[in-house]
Design a protein around this nucleic acid. Structure first.
Ligand SMILES: NC(=O)c1ccc[n+]([C@@H]2O[C@H](COP(=O)([O-])OP(=O)(O)OC[C@H]3O[C@@H](n4cnc5c(N)ncnc54)[C@H](O)[C@@H]3O)[C@@H](O)[C@H]2O)c1
Ligand SMILES: NC(=O)c1ccc[n+]([C@@H]2O[C@H](COP(=O)([O-])OP(=O)(O)OC[C@H]3O[C@@H](n4cnc5c(N)ncnc54)[C@H](O)[C@@H]3O)[C@@H](O)[C@H]2O)c1
Lengths: 222, 222
DNA sequence: CTATTATCGATATAAGTTTATCGATTGGAG
DNA sequence: CTCCAATCGATAAACTTATATCGATAATAG
């Protein structure tokens, strides 16, 4: 037990970089575990998870290993511990505050969604340029004028912005966010936005997903 | 010019299977081209596209090659022809009808979005179990009772369903769709749904994207 | 108590995707 | 007209991700 294969040339702080596909599957495992009847199922095997989620047991095992959890042969993983390990790994126990830009159709849907809380995201308020949209939003969230954004971000040390404004306004909102110290942007506009290297952007492009879907459909049909 | 490297063992119908990451980038190129001032820019090079979209020229060239377009050295691609080639490849010129399940917050946002038309998707109507939601929806789209779904799908030969109902109802809606002949499902519920092998499912899991974003953010911060 | 079997964890192989290299082609400068 | 620089297209290498193999371990049956 003495020669555990420590990453060479690493002083102990550089952990294995997590693969993005794995990262995207972790919430799926988490949701699966949440829906298990925990009074009945105290342990779960990779085999079972893989079967239910249409994956291979090997992949599941490798994904879960990233969280540091250890399983027991013939039994599997403790369901409670596994769920906590995923939450811990994804940082869902330390909620991040976020500010939403654009309280239109999509923005309001995001604002009214109560599921984000369990994913460690708290949308503290929305911002909209249209005075008619301003005031009280769903779930006691305020919809503020654009001018209030900078102060709010600075005062609350908000690090995440969600962009749900029209494409034409996306870049200017991004610039505003960056100048206020935002470090991560979740972008729902179908536009490429440019930010400094130390800011992370996650593009949520529905057109891409749709392209995959319709291409698969058309290939099936022929 | 006589020995073009035809795919061996292919009678001429089996084209190269398109890589999914490439497929996801094609709409991004398309949107980029749409925003170009076409009166000024008649040709565009991979180098330029790559620079603007933060990709490598080689990748852009390879992606675009899938659409069958050919460029000219020193000039690049004809912007108009390139845009049409992408639309053609993605099938955006032959719109698909789709039926939306769930006219809640997210469903209504999707229903009111007029951008899907240019991606070859036409949401013909929505369906909701709640009588209070039924009636006229945005953009002259009807919101129908659940009982009407099966008939509508069969009558209009609808092949695509969009699921925006609560997680608990997602599988039963999927089962209904499959029994009516739906061949592709775009699923916004955070649930894994099970369908026969000849039906395609595209899961749109916001939790996955959020996991990527927040993990990157937390790695940056340390 | 021992044999059996399901499962984990690690290592190795395969498949898929991105990036690099290089010759060929074309438009424009001299 | 000739040379040069930019770009394409194809092939090869590097990297990433997924799958397979195999020994070790623990629960269970006999
Ligand atoms: N609705 C959908 O289903 C859907 C799907 C895919 C992508 N999108 C994208 O999401 C974005 C929002 O879509 P939507 O349907 O909610 O549009 P929308 O028009 O309903 O809402 C846009 C909101 O942004 C506000 N706004 C405009 N400029 C602003 C600015 N500079 N600062 C702050 N607020 C501003 C508007 O007042 C409006 O309330 C768009 O970029 C759209 O392309 C939407
Ligand atoms: N709102 C968001 O921003 C968001 C984000 C991520 C995921 N989602 C997911 O999208 C789905 C919809 O979210 P939402 O916020 O619109 O929820 P919602 O509660 O606002 O809307 C759900 C709608 O589905 C209808 N419905 C329920 N059961 C039905 C059935 N069997 N057949 C037809 N209609 C039925 C309800 O009447 C309601 O109108 C959920 O699964 C949610 O987890 C939503």
């Amino acid at each position: 037990m003495e020669n555990l294969p420590i990453d060479p040339a690493a002083g102990g702080e550089e952990r294995a970089p997590i693969a993005e596909p794995t990262l995207r599957r972790l919430p799926v495992y988490h949701n699966y575990l949440k829906n298990l009847d925990s009074s009945k199922t105290h342990a779960i095997s990779c085999t079972q998870i893989a079967q239910d989620l249409h994956l291979t047991p090997i992949q599941v095992r490798k994904d879960l290993a990233c969280t540091g959890i250890v399983g027991k042969p013939k039994t599997g993983y403790d369901t409670q511990a596994l769920r906590l390990a995923i939450e811990d790994f994804l940082g869902w126990n330390n909620p991040n505050d976020a500010l939403l830009f654009g309280a239109g159709h999509l923005g309001l849907a995001l604002l009214s969604y109560d599921g984000f809380a369990s994913y460690g995201l708290d949308i503290v308020a929305a911002v909209d340029a249209d005075p008619a949209k301003q005031g009280a939003g769903p779930r006691d969230k305020k919809i503020l004028p654009l001018e209030k954004a900078a102060g709010l971000i600075r005062r609350m040390h908000i690090k995440i912005a969600i962009i749900a404004v029209p494409e034409a306004a996306a870049q200017s909102i991004a610039d505003l966010c960056v100048s206020c110290g935002i470090k991560a942007i979740w972008n729902f506009a179908p536009a490429k936005i440019t930010v400094p290297a130390d800011v992370t952007v996650q593009h949520e492009n529905l057109a891409s997903s749709l392209a995959v879907l319709s291409k698969k459909l058309s290939l099936r049909g022929e």
